Each structure stands twice: as structure tokens, then as C-alpha cells.
Amino acid sequence: MQVPQRLYSLDELKLNGIEAISLLSPVDATLGAIERNLQIAAILSGSAAWYALDLSPQQILFVSLGVLFLWTLDLVSFNGGVGTLVLDTIGHTFSQKYHSRVIQHEAGHFLIAYLLGILPKGYTLTSLDALKKEGSLNIQAGTAFVDFEFIEEVNRGKVTATMLNRFSCIALAGVATEYLLFGYAEGGLSDINQLDALLKSLGFTQKKADSQVRWAVLNTILILRRHEKARSKLAEAMTRGKSVGVCIDIIEKSISDDDL
């Protein structure tokens, strides 16, 4: 850990070049735009089919109910996994910015976890990769860790300060990386929500939760700035689909013992 743990004000974060609102309120504009375009295309296609096939109002109703049923089934059975898979696949295929952002985001998680003593055990960069590896639509792309000790502590309802600090930084590493590279974060809302839910489950007051998050943001940003070269090389390796072992070797070769 690099910075003392205390309550940092938003002004103190700004003095360190951090605009919290741009980091902690991510909105995925890329996938949002893709989703809106798909909805418009669906409406136009439906209208064209109506005129071309001369469908009756009753037939239109049945088709609409069928689409609504499939959408509801996806939400209930797969937690929106099918929709996420479609949007994510289109995003990676047609948006180089989205593709790059996801890779950098996961490289941030991977690097911070390893530097803080939590071993990454695998990663996926797309929802399609996650589906192929895990065989489930409920699993999103991301980085997985050897976190048995942390899970045990969470299940007991008592998480040590050291473990909480580590996982707070890891949770925010993705949005922090995006912020450093692009000036704002688009992905990572689920990471923030999970951290927020954890802090609430541990009985944190809003003030105490804010203190934990602001400290973790500052600490994570400073670590990422210090090891920018390692993160960049790690992202390149992850782009090429290198193994976890190779990725760790790249980190160790990019960072001297004095920097650890």
C-alpha cells in the first residue's frame, strides 16, 4: 500500500489529478449506442415486414408477445446473458475503442491483484470467450482470482482490514485504468456495485464507505501510474491470449525489486 489510510476529501483527490465523478459513475456509451441502434433496426425491420408480408394486427401481437417472452426468459434464466453476449460481441467486432478499453480494464484488475498479493487464475476478454470457457451465459468476461480466503471471510461476515483494502483496490482497478487512459470510465459499473454491496453488508456507514472507496481510488491510481509500463505490456500479452503464467512473468520482468 502506498498512501496512508484516512478519509480523503474530493478536493484532495483533485489535487492528485483525480475527478471522482469521471471514475466512479461509469456509463457504457458504446454498448448503449449499439443497443439503441439495434432497437431502431428492430422497429424498422418489423415495420418493413408488416408492410411486405401484410401481417394482421393479431399476427403482429403474437410476434410482439413472442419477442417479449424471449426477452423476459433471458432476464430471468440468464440474468440478461444473451443480450449481453450479443452487445459485447458486436462491440468487440465493430468498435476498436470498446475492444481496447475492455482489454486495458482487465489488465488493470490483473496487475493490481498481482501486486497486492492476490494471484490471478484466469481471464476472459469477451462474453463469447467466457461462454466457451465456462459454458454458462451467467458468467461475464473478466479476471478471476485465487480468493478462497476472501470468500471465507465474506461468508463469515468478518473481513480483515488488510483483505478489504486489497479487494477494494482490485475492484476499482478497472475503472481506474480506464480513467487514466481515456479521462473517464465507461465499464466497471458492476465492480463498483459489488464493492458498494460488500461495504453495506459489512455494516459500513455512508461516510465510512466513502472513506474506503476514496482511499482505494487514490491508492490504486498511484500504483497504476507508477507501473504504467508493466500494465501496457500486460495488456499486449492479454490481447494475444497469453497464459496467466506468461502474463505474470511479463509483470515481474517489467518491474524492478525496488519498485515493488
Score class of each variant (00 low, 15 high):
113 A>M: 08
172 L>M: 14
162 T>P: 01
143 T>M: 00
130 A>H: 08
121 K>Y: 12
172 L>A: 09
119 L>N: 13
122 G>S: 12
118 I>W: 03
111 L>W: 00
113 A>K: 01
173 A>K: 11
147 D>W: 05
117 G>Q: 10
168 S>L: 04
112 I>P: 01
159 V>C: 02
114 Y>M: 03
144 A>C: 08
146 V>I: 12
147 D>E: 13
159 V>H: 00
131 L>P: 00
110 F>V: 04
146 V>S: 13
138 N>S: 15
164 L>Q: 02
172 L>T: 07
171 A>N: 07
104 Q>F: 07
163 M>V: 14
159 V>F: 01
161 A>P: 02
109 H>R: 03
171 A>F: 07
128 L>S: 09
168 S>D: 02
129 D>L: 13
142 G>A: 10
106 E>F: 00
123 Y>D: 02
151 I>S: 12
139 I>H: 10
159 V>W: 00
152 E>Y: 08
122 G>A: 10
108 G>Y: 04
155 N>E: 15
102 V>H: 01
130 A>K: 05
104 Q>I: 06
102 V>D: 00
145 F>S: 04
126 T>N: 09
106 E>A: 04
134 E>V: 07
108 G>L: 04
125 L>H: 09
161 A>V: 07
123 Y>K: 03
113 A>E: 03
156 R>V: 10
111 L>D: 02
114 Y>F: 07
130 A>L: 06
142 G>R: 04
154 V>D: 01
145 F>H: 04
132 K>P: 06
146 V>C: 06
121 K>C: 13
161 A>N: 09
166 R>I: 06
162 T>C: 09
131 L>Q: 02
126 T>G: 12
164 L>M: 10
113 A>H: 03
169 C>H: 01
153 E>D: 11
124 T>Q: 06
166 R>E: 09
116 L>W: 15
124 T>L: 06
144 A>R: 10
105 H>W: 07
136 S>I: 08
116 L>N: 12
103 I>A: 05
116 L>C: 11
144 A>H: 09
157 G>L: 15
149 E>W: 08
105 H>Y: 14
135 G>N: 12
126 T>S: 15
157 G>E: 08
159 V>N: 00
103 I>Y: 02
109 H>V: 03
106 E>S: 03
124 T>R: 07
137 L>W: 06
120 P>E: 01
161 A>Q: 07
153 E>T: 08
165 N>D: 12
164 L>A: 04
138 N>G: 14
122 G>Y: 03
125 L>T: 12
117 G>H: 08
143 T>A: 02
103 I>L: 13
116 L>Q: 09
173 A>Q: 12
148 F>C: 07
163 M>W: 10
121 K>M: 13
152 E>Q: 13
152 E>G: 10
173 A>S: 15
165 N>P: 05
166 R>P: 02
111 L>A: 04
123 Y>I: 04
170 I>S: 03
149 E>P: 06
154 V>R: 04
152 E>F: 09
153 E>I: 08
138 N>D: 14
173 A>E: 11
167 F>L: 06
162 T>A: 12
147 D>L: 05
118 I>G: 00
132 K>R: 15
109 H>M: 05
